[in-house]
Design a protein around this nucleic acid. Structure first.
Lengths: 352, 352
DNA sequence: CTGAAAGCGCTTACAG
DNA sequence: CTGAAAGCGCTTACAG
C-alpha cells in the first residue's frame, strides 16, 4: 500500500513558510544564524505537514549517520534463540543510552566466522560499533586489530587487559572473583571449587579465576587444580556437565564459585541430582546477576555487573571516539548480591 | 580518529576497472544488463579496494532503506532494565530473520506516551515497523489506526481479533489457554484459578482466559469469578501479589493457570510462602515458555509460543507489505510443555 | 540574517 | 551491453 500523500520535502516547507529551502534546513537544525521569528514560522509549518528530515539525504550530505551498530556474537554452541541473558540486559541499556543521546541503534547477531570487521562503517550504515560477546579472545583479537588499523570506531565489552587493541569497557572481574570467594571463606567454606574456563581464551573468566585464587591465598589456602572444572561457554548445560565432571573426581568440596550465573544454575541442578543440598552441603555463588538468578532454587548469591551503567559507558565512550576524542578503557566495580545459595545467615527470604 | 584512506566511491572502482560509474553500479547490484566478464572485473576491483555501496546514497536514490524498525514498548511499571524475556526471545528471532532477508534492523524502546506513530517511516529511517508489547490495547488502538491511515507498513505481535487495524501475528491464545486448563482437568484438578487480567485492555490474556473458561465448561464445571485474580502486567512481582490476593480470599484451589510464565513464577513463590506445595497442593501452569521456566522451582509446565516461527512470520509479513502485497493477520498454534509444576506423572526429571 | 548554488554517492531512465 | 546525465533531499560554504 502506498502512502496517501508523498512525504513533504524541505522545499515544500520553504514554499509554505515563504523562505528559501536553505533557511528551512538551518531553522530546523537549530542554527544560530536564523531569526527567531523565522524559525518559529518554519517549525510551525514543519509540524503541520508532519515534516521530518530525510535521514538518508541528511546523512549523505553530512557524511555521518547518527547511528551506531551493536554486534552481538553468538555462542555457536548455544541454542538458536537462546542468547545469554546477561547480554540481553546489556542490549536493553545500550538501546536506551543510544536513544537518549540521539543515536539510532542497528543491531545484528554475528557468527564469529562472519566477515564483520569492515561492513558497517564502510557502508556508512553506522558511525561506530559496539561489540558484545565476541567469543574466544585469541581468535577475535586479530579482528580487533584490523578494526583499529582501519580507523573504525568501536568499543567492546569484555576483560580489560594490557595491550589490547582498541577500547574496552568491562567490570573488574578479578575484584568480583575475589569478593565471591572471600565471602565463601568468611562463611567457613574451605574446599571451594571454580566452575569456568581458566585460560587466556576467555579472559573474563580467567580474571575471575585469578581473583578466586588470590582470595584463597590471602586466607592461607592452596589452590588445588582438582577444584577447577573447565567451562568455556556460559550455558546451563555446560555448567551442569562441568559440575558432574567435578563431582566425579571424588574430591571433597563444600562450595562452588561459578564463573557465570548460567553455569551456576547448571551446577545447582547437578548438585541436586547427586543428592547434595545447597547451601547446606555445597554453597554456590555465581556471576552476573541475570534476572533468572533470583528465581533459582535456591535463589543465587552472585556478583552483580551493573549493566545499566555499562551500557551507558559503552555508548558514551563510542560517541567520544566518533567526535574524535581520545578514550581510555575502563573497569567498573562489581557488587556481591547475597541470596540463599551461599548459606549466609542474613540472606533475605524472597527475591529482593 | 580519522580513517586512514577515505572510503572509495563507485567512481574509484570505475576508474580502476576501466568502465563507467554506471556500469559499476549495475555490475554490483547484479543487473542482467551487464556482461559477465565486465561484472567479474568490477567485482574484483571492488573487493580489492574493500568497496561497499554507500547506504545513504543508495537509499536516497532508491527511496527505500532496506531497514525495518523494531519498536518495543516498555511496561511502565517494569524495572528499567527488565524487559519481558518473552519479547527478548522474539527480538532474537526477528533480528535473525531480518538479517537473513537482507534487511537491517533498527531497534528502539518506546514509552507508550511517545510520539512514535510517525517518526520512523516519515524520516525514511525504516521501510516498515514491527510492534512488540504495546501495552493497553484500548489505548494503543488509536495509534494503530493512525498508522494505517498514514499508509505506514507495520505488523504487530498480539492477539488476533476481528476488526483490528493493520496486520497482527499472534499465537492462538484461546487454544493455548484451553489446552492448559484441559491438561489440569485431566490430572484431576477441579478448583483451577486464573491469574491474569480478563479484560479487553489486554486481549491476549483475555483470550487465554476465554480458553480456560471453555475448557472448564467442556468439563461441566462452572466458571467461578472468585477464582480469577487480576494481573495486567506480566511481571513476577505482579504474579506474586495477585496470588496472595487470591489466597487471601480463602477459596479452595488446587491449581493455578497463570497468563504468563513471569506471573506463574510469582505465583510459585506466593504459594511457597503460604506453605503450599507445588504441585501436590496446588498445580501451576504458565504461558510463554521463557528460558527461565525450566529453572523454576519446580520446573514450570507451560504453553509454548514458538518465538522463532513468530519472528520469521513477522518479518516475512512486513516485507510482503513493503512489496505491496496484501497480507492477512495470522495465528500460530501453541504447544503444551509438561514439566513438574503441574504434577503430571510422566514429567521428565530435569530440564529437557 | 537570508538565498542561490554546489555537491554528498548513488540508481536508473534514455540514447546509442 | 555501455555511457552520459539527471536527480534523490539534504547541508553548508559563499556572497550579499
Amino acid at each position: 500500500m502506498a502512502r496517501m500523500k508523498s512525504k513533504p520535502t524541505s522545499f515544500d516547507i520553504a514554499y509554505r513558510a515563504g523562505v528559501s529551502q536553505a533557511t528551512v534546513s538551518r531553522a530546523l537544525r537549530g542554527s544560530p544564524l536564523v531569526n527567531e521569528e523565522t524559525r518559529r514560522r518554519v517549525q510551525a509549518v514543519a509540524k503541520e505537514l508532519h515534516y521530518t528530515v530525510d535521514k538518508h539525504a541528511s546523512s549523505l550530505r553530512r557524511q555521518s549517520s547518527a547511528t551506531v551498530a551493536l554486534l552481538l556474537f553468538e555462542d555457536p554452541t548455544a541454542d538458536d534463540s537462546l542468547i545469554n541473558p546477561f547480554f540481553l540486559s546489556m542490549l536493553g541499556s545500550i538501546t536506551r543510552a543510544a536513544a537518549r543521546l540521539g543515536y539510532d541503534l542497528l543491531i545484528s547477531f554475528q557468527q564469529l566466522s562472519d566477515d564483520w570487521h569492515a561492513d558497517y562503517q564502510d557502508s556508512h550504515k553506522a558511525d561506530g560499533l559496539i561489540l558484545l560477546g565476541y567469543g574466544d579472545y585469541l581468535v577475535s583479537r586479530g579482528r580487533l586489530e584490523r578494526l583499529v588499523q582501519q580507523g573504525t570506531h568501536f568499543v567492546r565489552w569484555g576483560a580489560v587487559v594490557e595491550g589490547q587493541p582498541g577500547v574496552s569497557i568491562g567490570c573488574d572481574n578479578r575484584q568480583g572473583g575475589e569478593a565471591a570467594t572471600t565471602h565463601l571463606l568468611a562463611l567457613g567454606r574451605r574446599r571451594i571449587a571454580f566452575v569456568g574456563a581458566a585460560s587466556p581464551h576467555c579472559p573474563e573468566f580467567f580474571e575471575r579465576y585469578a581473583g578466586h585464587c588470590a582470595a584463597l591465598r590471602a586466607a592461607g589456602l592452596e589452590v588445588d587444580p582438582q577444584l577447577q572444572a573447565d567451562a568455556g561457554d556460559s550455558t546451563e548445560l555446560v555448567g551442569h556437565a562441568a559440575t558432574h565432571a567435578l563431582l566425579a573426581r571424588d574430591v571433597a568440596i563444600d562450595a562452588i564459585f561459578a564463573a557465570s550465573d548460567l553455569l551456576a544454575i547448571g551446577a545447582l541442578r547437578a548438585l541436586a541430582e547427586r543428592g547434595l543440598r545447597t547451601p547446606e552441603d555445597v554453597a554456590v555463588v555465581g556471576f552476573d546477576d541475570i534476572p533468572m538468578a533470583r528465581f533459582a532454587a535456591p535463589p543465587l548469591t552472585t556478583v552483580l555487573q551493573d549493566t545499566k551503567r555499562a551500557g551507558e559507558l559503552l555508548v558514551a565512550s563510542l560517541l567520544q571516539q566518533i567526535r574524535g576524542e581520545t578514550v581510555e578503557s575502563r573497569m567498573l566495580p562489581t557488587t556481591l548480591v547475597i541470596r540463599r545459595s551461599c548459606g549466609a545467615p542474613a540472606a533475605p527470604a524472597g527475591p529482593a
